[in-house]
Every structure is written in C-alpha cells, then in structure tokens.
Write a protein that binds this DNA or RNA. Structure first.
Lengths: 201, 201, 201, 201
DNA sequence: GATGAATGAGAATTCATTCAT
DNA sequence: GATGAATGAATTCTCATTCAT
C-alpha cells in the first residue's frame, strides 16, 4: 500500500467518524478533540489530514452527497416507457435509499439539519446537492410526460420539488421514530401517493 | 401603556429581530452582541428581557410554531364531505401558508435547518411541533377515508408524512430560489400531485 | 424633622441592612440590587444616599467600629488599682461585647472576614481600627504594670495583641457555633486564662 | 521526568503564585488573566491545570492547610508530663509556626481574611480547618489536665479557642506590621500569657 | 509522522452606575 | 425625590489551531 493510499484510508476513517458525530451532536457541538478521541488519535494528528474543522465538514458533506448520488446512479431517467415501469424504478430507488439510510442512518440528518447553519459556502453546497436531486427527479418526470404515461399537464418543476420533499422529509421522519424501518410499507405508501394521489376512484 | 405592555412589546421586537438573524446566519453564528447591535441597544439590555441566548431561542421557536399553527387553525379537519371540498380546503391552507411565508420568509428555514442542532431539548421541541403538524394532516386524511372520498386503502400515517414533507420542503425550496413566489402555481402543482398523482389517465 | 434628619435616618437604615447582608454573603456577593430589594426601594434610590457601593462599605465599617468603640468607652483604662478591680472591668467589657454581638451578630464577621479583601484603603481602615483596640488594651495593661498588680516583666505590646486575638477570634468562634451563647462561661474561661494562665498551682 | 510529574509541578507553580496574589489582592480582585500574566502564560493554559478559578482556590486553601498541619505534626499532644515540658512543646510549635509564616507570609492572611466570603463551600472548608486546629489544642490541654499539671478547673473548650485566637490573630498582627519578626519575643510573650496569666504574684 | 501542551480570539453573562421620566 | 431601564466594561471560560518535541 502506497503512502498516498494510507493517507486516503485515514481520511476516509476520519470522515466516517465525523459523519456520525456531526449528525449526532451537530457541527458546533462537536469539538476537534471529540473527533480525535473517537479516533483514538491525538488532535494534532487531525490537522495532518484536513486543513481545518470546516474543511473536514466539506469532505463529510461531499462524501454524503456522493453516497446518495451513487445510490441513484443505477437507474436511467429515460429508461421507462410505461407508468408501470417507472413505478418499478421508483420502488427500486426507494429501496436503495432505504438501504443507504439503514447503513448510514445519519446521512439525511447530516444534510438537512446539522450542516446548514455553519457557513454561507456550506449552505450553498447543500443547496447545490438538493438542486441536483431535483434535476434528476425532473428528468424522470419529463421522460414520462414526453412518452405520454404521465399527465400531460404536469407542472414538472413543482412536482419534482414536491416529490423530493416527500421523500427526504419522509425519510427523516422514518429515522426519527426508532421503529424498525418497515421499508416496504413506506415505499408502497409513497409510490401510491405519488402515482395515484389520495382521491378515491 | 402599562409597564408590562412595554416589556412585552420589547420582547416581541427582540424575537422578531432574532428570528430573522437566526434564520439568516444560524444560532451559533449569531452573538448576543449581534442581536443587540441590530436592535440598536447595548448587549446588557438583552438580558433584561431574556434569561439567556438559549431562552431567546426557545421563545423564537415557540413564536414560529404559534404562527404556523394559527395559520392552520381556520380550517376544520372534519369539515369536508367530498374530495372537491377537501381540495378547496387544502388550497386555502396552502394560500395561508404562502401568505405566512411571504411575511416571514425565514420561518421554515428557522424550524427546519437552524434550530435543531443546538440542544437535545430544542430538538425535541422542534420534533414535537412537527408531530403536531403530522397529526393534523392525519386527521384530515382520516376524515376523507371515513367519509369515502379518499382511497379506502390509504396508509394514513405514511401519506400524512409524505404530504407534510412535500409541503414543508417544497416551501423551503420555493424560498431558496429568490424568484417571486407564484403561489397559485405552487398550490395547483401540489394539490394535483396530492389528489391525483402523476399518472396519466 | 428637618430634611437633613430624614436623609440621615435613611442612611442609617441602609447601613443597617447592608451591614447584615455584607456580613452574611460578603461584599462581592452582594449586589446593589440586593440591598435595594431588602430595603424595598429602587436601586437608583441608593445612589441618592451613597456615592457608590464602596462608599457604603466605608460607612458600614465606620459604623461597626463606632459601635465597638462605644461599647468599650464606659470603662476607664486607668481606673483599676488592683487585679481584682481590673478583672471586674474585663468582665464588664466582655459582657458589653457579648451584648453587642448578640444584637448585631454580624459585626465581627464583617470586620474580620468580609471587608478586608475589597480594597487597599478598606484593608487599611480595618487595620487602623484593630490598632485602636490594641492601643486600648495596651493602656489597661500599662496601668496594671505601673500600679504593680500585673507582672512587672509583662511584654505589654505582645500581651495586648494576644489578649485581643483571644477575644476577637474567640468571639468569632462563639458565633460560628450556633449554640445559644453562654456568655458567662466564655467570660470566665477567658478571664481565667488571661489573669491566671493555664498552669496548675 | 514523567508527564504526570510535569503536570504536578506546573500545578504547584500555579498554586504558589495564586496563594500570593490571592492573599495580596483578594480572590475577587484577582482575575484569571492576572494569574496567567504572573505565570508568563496565556490564560487558556490555566484551564489545562484547573477546572475553574474556584477549583484553584480550593487547591490553594488545601495546600495552605496542609502546610500548617505539617508544621504541627512533629509534636505529640500526649507527650508532656509536666508544665515545663508542655511549655517547651508550645515554644517549639510557636517557632515552627513562625518559620512557616516567615516563608509564606501570606498563609494566615489567606485563610483568615481573603478566602471566606467566596462561597458557602469555601467558608465551610476554612471553618473545618479551624476546627481541626481547635481540636488539636484541646487534646494538648486535656493531656495537661488529666496529668494534673494544668488547672483542674480549666474550661478546656473555651481555653482552646482562646489560645488559638491568641496565636492566629497575634500572628496576623505580627505580619501586618512589617517589622522584622522577632519571633523569640513573641513566643515568650505568648507562652507567659498562656501559662502564667498577667497577674503579678 | 504523531502528539498534545500552549495559546488567545471570541462568546456569554453580570452588575455598578447613569439618567430620563 | 424616586425609580428602574439601559448600558458596556470587565470577567470567566471554550476551543480551533499551532508547533516544539
């Protein structure tokens, strides 16, 4: 293993610990010394791997965004040709997100609650990630409208934001309750709402 | 004006300023001195009206929750007998929320992003408010299912969380973009999504 | 009652309250607001009667010293011609001091413990009072040596300091215990020690 | 030198500086910044060695009490069988105390004047130390009464308090005057008073 | 390369004093 | 004359960052 690889591994280790601790206690309530203690290292060591506490937060957020994006990358926004197929895609995406949250149950909390009030730059970074997710949802919806299996009069932008909000805040709520996550029920509930609405027919 | 009224007025003034500043810069990035400066007062003055900075935050949050609850209090969750009527209720609620957000554009940001990582007690307070909103949505949905104008197989809990997420995070997005808020478009987009889903028929 | 008399009365009232509170909680732990509250007056009022908190302390100490001096003024240091007579004087002085302490049980504490670490000027003032008491004891002892009823080889200065220490710290101890003050026992114990020493004969 | 030894040494250094400064200026008039300045260190450094300013005071007082107790520990309260022997013991104790005061001329001032009005807990700590000294004197006196070389009718409790007051406040007076301390004269004066009283025979 | 002791900028809070009402 | 709201200097304590070992 080269020297660079060792450095990378240590950085990843620190990011993993910091992700958890930042999500649990918040950026401002977590000291560099806390992170170092959890790592079992001196807190001077920390500065060999990151320029500053803020620099670490940037890496932590980038890592979180990367993981979420990776979970979504398996699906192609243009792949579906029927509502049935799109619904199946959404279910697979939902399942992937739930798997992610089950492994890293602090990911959402990190992004939505704890990282935003640090800095204008950090806020912008989080917003940018949210916009990416929004654009992704938009392209799925556009595909469906173009191919005619989604409503022709769909306001794609508004709907995309609504769908994302439903998913993200729903996920946050799912985590808040400590109940074992019954992912199937959540996914069914959300896809039903998204595809069919609440009205009886 | 009695002395108590003067005290109340000054407290409200401080809460108004702090709501804005906390939302803009975050609780931790805002010093008592900053708040005092914006008030045009010495920072000792602040402590005549609030016990501590944390005490102020509690008041700020309570005030925010009160305003949101007040905006929702005009409607009765059991009033509607048809999907049509319920949709009209939702549109009125949406309009009320948009009016609220137009006046206090930091309200949502305050609750969702900036207040949560201060303290376990503060987190609990925000969660509690979120749960109230969730329960409220649940009672609307239950009314519709009971009366038969909403889908009989609706998973009320999951759907309520989805709907609230759609609204809250959607609102946050709406504010994030600084575009003049076209509330009618947002409301139509969200009600269409909520009542009819995205599928073409 | 003239205006000046009203001012004097109010000043004495404040001094009385402050003597107690300073003795109980210490100068630094007592705020101007505390004194005002006990007086049932606004704390701005305080400044009509005293220049500052420190000025009040000066008056409080002067008053305490005056009371102690007054309690000692009834006896004449040159009056005794025999050890018997001097012992009677000492017993009367002791009784007078105990009466004083019973009325104002904070007087000693005020002088010995709570007033000294405020200021160089205050420390000097307390020392000066202690020196007066010391000189007074010296003149009693000198009278006895001159008249031959006290030991000819008495080191008057040292003995005077010893006797005063015995009395003052003894008094402080007597107050520390909350036991009802059995003044006769204390006076007998101290005069026996002072006149006869501890050695068996 | 181990790390723990370095920490201990630095703590002792801080205690030594603080003992002097607290005694000179008083606890309340001494800021943490003052102590740090005298140490030639940043004031953050202080908090590496003591939890708080109050914690430092506790250590300072404990150290002072330890030194006084150590100076008294060489003598055995039950060792003397004659007044002559006891007087010799008292003279040795007096000499030891004077040596102590010559080295640490702020010790007594610290205990009697400057430490008492900080806190109920601190007051209790000082009182407790005073009670220990009182008990020690009592056991010397009891030994003498039991063996018959001190007066059978001695009120041991009262006398012990008187003797301690004589010594402590006498010592304080001795220090107050800046005259070179002529310890022999003080010791002779006090032992004469204590053993023989002032009456001519 | 790792460490953690030292540092001081910065933050919250207190309280004696002033002064407009 | 009395009041207490306003003030800001001063104080204690925290913690990100540096750097000598």
């Amino acid at each position: 293993m080269t020297k660079q690889e060792l450095v990378d591994r240590r950085q990843r280790e620190i990011i993993a610990v910091a992700s958890r601790v930042f999500a649990e206690r918040g950026y401002h309530n977590t000291g560099v010394a806390d992170i170092a203690r959890e790592l079992g290292a001196g807190h001077g060591t920390f500065y060999r791997y990151f320029e500053s506490k803020l620099d670490l937060l940037r890496h932590v957020l980038d890592h979180a965004v990367d993981r979420i994006m990776a979970a979504l990358a398996d699906e192609d926004p243009g792949a579906s040709d029927t509502a049935q197929e799109y619904r199946a895609q959404v279910e697979r995406i939902g399942a992937a997100l739930f798997r992610l949250l089950r492994d890293d149950d602090h990911l959402v909390r990190l992004l939505t609650m704890h990282a935003s009030n640090v800095d204008a730059e950090i806020t912008a970074r989080v917003s940018e990630a949210a916009e990416s997710l929004f654009s992704l949802t938009e392209s799925y919806l556009r595909n469906g409208v173009d191919k005619g299996f989604l409503r022709a009069d769909l306001d794609i932008e508004i709907t995309a934001r609504g769908v994302n909000g439903m998913i993200l805040l729903g996920a946050l709520n799912a985590l808040g309750r400590e109940e074992a996550i019954n992912s199937e029920r959540w996914i069914r509930g959300f896809t039903d709402l998204m595809f069919d609405g609440i009205t009886a027919r």
